[in-house]
Write a protein that binds this DNA or RNA. Structure first.
Length: 674
DNA sequence: CATCGAGTAAACAGTC
DNA sequence: CGACTGTTTACTCGAT
């Protein structure tokens, strides 16, 4: 019936046609989340720093990264020890059983699996201190360097823009610069505080040569110091070709040798590795490839020692020689209980972050849409590749070699980029196809929770399938049921992207609701509401994890155990998410309960459910396991087979806060697999 | 190349 | 009558 061929042509139509006006058009119709139009993305953002104008890298974020770095280094140091310092650049080596002085159990663990406590136990205080100190020093250096770069960049930017005849009013630039400077100032202040903190934490002396030695050989750098800046700038990723168009935004630092070189390597999976590898193939990790700006670190020097005085912030004690300096450090900047406690807290924070779902690949994706709002449109826009140069800043690269979402409790980076986005979604800007959520991407719930703000404001198409989004919307409600209109509202409320082209996606939503068995319509007093049949939902999800050789490959390539674990966990989390998410589902009986689900991922065909699932009744009888949608007046009776019956109803009806469930889910990864 | 899942478009029927 | 809602069909695309 349809106009044949039309599809092709029509496909591009929506975007080009309504792309413009539809935003306000019908979006409101759905009661859409307030402030619709405001998001017009792009425009209002300050691209200069590669972050949201409001969300420019805050000092807090910086601190966070620093802390993370320190911990990463510590972990790696541990790792190094475990592997007997044997592995110059060989990831696998870490598995070597030659654990020296380190308990086997530890040696076999991924550094990421170590708890702060463990780390502390394993590392002797001096080692710990040494590591922290070392890291601290590097941070200081890099920060200084970064400030310089930033300023250079700013100048460059100004020049560029002026040359390019950028109509940007001087005022704006001026303000920008001013704002930037203020920010820097603020950062410096915070940095100072941080330093003091670390100081208190007892970053005592150590022989640089000693600490840096092993660290240098570490295969995978945590966040390479030099990359920190990149993160801020949203430095571009290698594989981002067409970005030039946006470059002038100041995101690129192509002029900076340091960063430039680090991007020569291949993208994908383990960008971090490439980041930390110098042209000559040597890992750069902590060896500061710092340029002239900062003093060279020689075996006999100390990052915090220079010109005969202690460079510790706020401390300018004069020291005759290094020895004296070290002594000074030991006495003046020692460790006390309080700082130790702080350190622990920091470690835990970092650890928490590490546990968070990671992003499989294709880190670029930032708020590209902000610069190219149209890219997010449904039509396959050829130039969509021109994301902003956002990217895979090293900060996103964890030692595990995978890219982790930047989001974190500590770092309000949300707006920076949509982490969970698999390469699939934004990428090619292609049509909305290939949502990744259902695959091995991070769990949608956590992903959403973490990047809530981002999706809410950025006109970026979420990397989730309609089905998963709908489900999410439904599960987020206490009743686990929503009317169509409520679902619409959720979409518009949660995603700026869905504030336009409403006809299109609404149709898609309806289509999905009808099409997928997992969505069950229940007649309610107030009309019909939709619920989710978790069983069905799980059923329909192919155990991608298992099957996808690519994924596996990716995971492995990146890899450290940690990476693997993380990825795996993320995947597991995603699959089990539903259960966790819905209190009601937690019961063992129900749907194969999460744990079981994991097998899927592992390779086992998903069957647990099959028992009854296979025979799943036609969609008409709403088997709303989904949650006992007791709510509906309609007795969920239909429930046949599912023996899980018992546990089903019991669970907290909705009472148990709904949204919070996410937390559960996020925690999940932690346990399993251990 | 076939198949499958997903997204998009649209026709159509029922309800409000 | 028109907007919504829900169902269904057709087609394209990308991945496997």
């Amino acid at each position: 019936m349809m106009v044949e061929s039309a599809s092709e042509t029509i496909r591009s139509a929506p975007s080009s046609q309504n792309g413009v006006g539809s935003l306000s058009g019908q979006a409101d119709g759905s009661g859409g989340g307030g402030a619709t139009g405001t998001t017009a993305s792009g425009t209002g953002r300050d691209v200069t720093t590669g972050t949201d104008s409001n969300g420019e890298m805050s000092p807090a974020e910086l601190l966070h990264f620093q802390q993370q770095q320190a911990l990463q280094v510590a972990r790696q140091f541990l790792l190094q020890q475990a592997s007997g310092l044997s592995s110059p650049g060989n990831n696998d080596s870490k598995q070597s059983a030659s654990a020296v002085q380190v308990p086997v159990s530890v040696a076999m663990m991924s550094p990421q699996m170590l708890t702060p406590q463990q780390m502390q136990q394993i590392l002797s205080p001096p080692q710990l201190q040494a590591l922290l100190q070392q890291q601290q020093a590097l941070m200081l250096q890099q920060l200084q360097e970064y400030y310089k770069k930033q300023q250079e960049q700013l100048h460059l930017q100004l020049l560029t823009q002026q040359q390019a005849g950028k109509p940007q009013p001087k005022e704006a630039l001026g303000n920008k610069q001013l704002a930037f400077q203020q920010q820097l100032l603020q950062m410096q202040q915070l940095q100072q505080q941080h330093l003091l903190n670390l100081q208190r934490q007892g970053l005592v002396s150590l022989q640089p040569s000693q600490a840096s030695g092993p660290l240098q050989t570490l295969p995978q750098a945590a966040v390479c110091p030099t990359d920190l800046p990149q993160l801020w700038k949203g430095e571009g990723a290698p594989g981002q070709p067409a970005e030039d168009s946006v470059k002038q935004e100041g995101l690129d630092l192509t002029g900076t040798a340091a960063t430039a070189t680090s991007f020569a390597a291949p993208p994908k999976v383990s960008p971090s590795l490439s980041h930390h590898t110098l042209p000559n193939g040597q890992p750069t990790v902590l060896t500061s490839r710092r340029d002239s700006s900062s003093h060279e670190e020689t075996p006999g020097s100390h990052p915090l020692y220079g010109h005969g005085e202690c460079k510790w912030p706020g401390c300018e004690t004069l020291c005759e020689d290094l020895g004296q300096f070290i002594k000074h450090l030991n006495t003046e900047h020692a460790l006390d209980d309080r700082s130790t406690a702080q350190c622990r807290v920091q470690m835990q924070v970092v650890q928490q972050l590490e546990i968070q779902p990671l992003e499989p690949r294709d880190p670029h994706l930032g708020h590209w849409s902000q610069y190219h709002p149209h890219c997010s449109q449904l039509n396959p826009v050829p130039d969509s590749s021109s994301f902003s140069k956002v990217t895979v800043s090293a900060a996103d690269s964890f030692p595990d070699g995978l890219v982790h979402p930047p989001t974190s409790a500590a770092a309000p980076v949300t707006p920076l980029r949509p982490p969970g986005l698999g390469s699939a979604s934004l990428h090619g800007g292609g049509p909305a196809r290939r949502r990744s959520s259902d695959k091995f991407c991070s769990p949608i719930s956590s992903e959403l929770a973490q990047n809530h703000e981002f999706y809410k404001n950025a006109d970026v198409r979420p990397p989730f399938t309609y089905a998963s989004l709908i489900r999410q919307a439904i599960l987020e409600t206490p009743d686990r049921q929503l009317t169509l209109n409520e679902i619409y509202n959720w979409f518009t409320r949660m995603f700026a992207y869905f504030r336009r082209n409403t006809a299109t996606w609404k149709n898609a939503v309806r289509h999905n609701l009808s099409l997928h068995k997992c969505f069950v319509r229940v007649e309610n007093v107030k009309g019909a509401v939709w619920t989710v049949d978790e069983r069905e939902y799980q059923k329909r999800r192919p155990p991608k994890m298992t099957g996808s050789p690519t994924l596996v490959k990716n995971m492995i390539s990146g890899l450290s155990y940690g990476a693997l674990n993380a990825s795996y966990q993320a995947a597991l989390a995603e699959s089990s998410f539903p259960l966790l998410n819905s209190p009601g589902m937690l019961n063992p009986g129900s749907t194969s309960s999460l744990l079981p689900l994991s097998h899927d991922d592992v390779g086992a065909p998903l069957e647990p459910l099959s028992s009854n699932g296979s025979s799943s009744p036609p969609r008409l009888s709403p088997p709303q396991y989904s949650h006992q949608v007791q709510v509906k007046e309609e007795p969920a009776e239909a429930e046949e087979d599912r023996q899980p019956g018992p546990s089903l109803g019991a669970p907290n009806p909705s009472a148990s806060g709904p949204p919070e469930d996410r937390d559960l889910e996020e925690e999940l990864p932690g346990e399993e697999l251990s």
